[in-house]
Simulated assay, not measured.
Amino acid sequence: MTKRDFAFLLAPGAGAPSAHPRMQAFRRMLEPLGTVVPFDYAYAIEGKKSPDRLPRLIETHRAALAALRERHKGPIVLAGKSMGGRVGCHVALVEPVDAVICLGYPLCGSGDVSKLRDEVLVSLATPTLFVQGTKDRLCPLDLLDGVRQRMKAANALHVVEGGDHSSLVSKSELKARGVSQEHVDEEIRKAIARFLAVGKPVR
């Protein structure tokens, strides 16, 4: 597929609307791969701090997807930061899309390992890529590995060494490794490109 084929519907996390600097960084990360269309959930547009309940989040996400389909006839990928990725997974259960990219999947509700948000993942049939930091307390990699083994959908994992829930690495660690955050983000972009190119797990 060429760059012009793909359209990414980019969904924000609970505390970071589309205008947030990190969301803008994710947008720039995806732009070399295709058209990127960010959107915000209704509660954020209305100026509220607390997210809507899941049914309304899904409704807003599906409306944004329908609007994108009106002007883009090629393959569509649902990309989402944290909550946006989780809601995207729910949307993919009822809407045909080509792939889902979870940028920091919130597997553990409030960081509680006893509250796994895994039901939607094991129900998915859509190819899914997880981009996860090793220091993300909302998604311990050992727990995610167990979930991935139970998933029926083709799935892959890109690990961000030292990354937090936003795939950000501390300045001290970046310095120790002799790399920049831009380098880390470029590696994420490459992982996404590989995943979309092969359409099957990259392990």
Rank of each mutant, 00 (worst) to 15 (best):
M1S: 11
M1E: 02
D5I: 01
F8Y: 11
L9D: 00
L10E: 00
P12G: 02
P12I: 04
G13M: 07
A14K: 06
A14C: 08
G15R: 14
H20S: 14
R22K: 15
Q24C: 01
A25D: 13
R27G: 11
R28G: 06
R28K: 13
M29R: 09
P32G: 08
L33C: 08
T35A: 12
T35K: 15
D40I: 08
Y41C: 02
G47H: 08
G47Q: 05
K48Q: 13
D52H: 08
D52V: 01
R53V: 04
P55A: 01
R62I: 11
A66C: 04
H72R: 12
H72G: 10
K73R: 13
K73S: 15
K73L: 05
G74F: 15
L78F: 14
M83A: 08
G85I: 07
G88D: 02
G88V: 11
C89W: 01
C89F: 03
A92V: 04
A92N: 04
L93T: 07
L93E: 12
V94Y: 13
V97A: 10
A99V: 05
I101P: 00
G104K: 05
Y105V: 00
P106W: 10
P106Y: 10
P106H: 09
P106V: 06
L107M: 09
C108H: 12
C108E: 10
G111S: 06
G111A: 02
V120F: 11
V122L: 03
V122P: 08
V122R: 12
V122S: 03
L124S: 08
L124A: 08
A125D: 09
T126D: 02
L129Y: 12
L129P: 04
F130L: 01
T134Q: 04
T134E: 03
K135S: 07
D136Q: 05
D136I: 01
D136R: 02
L138W: 15
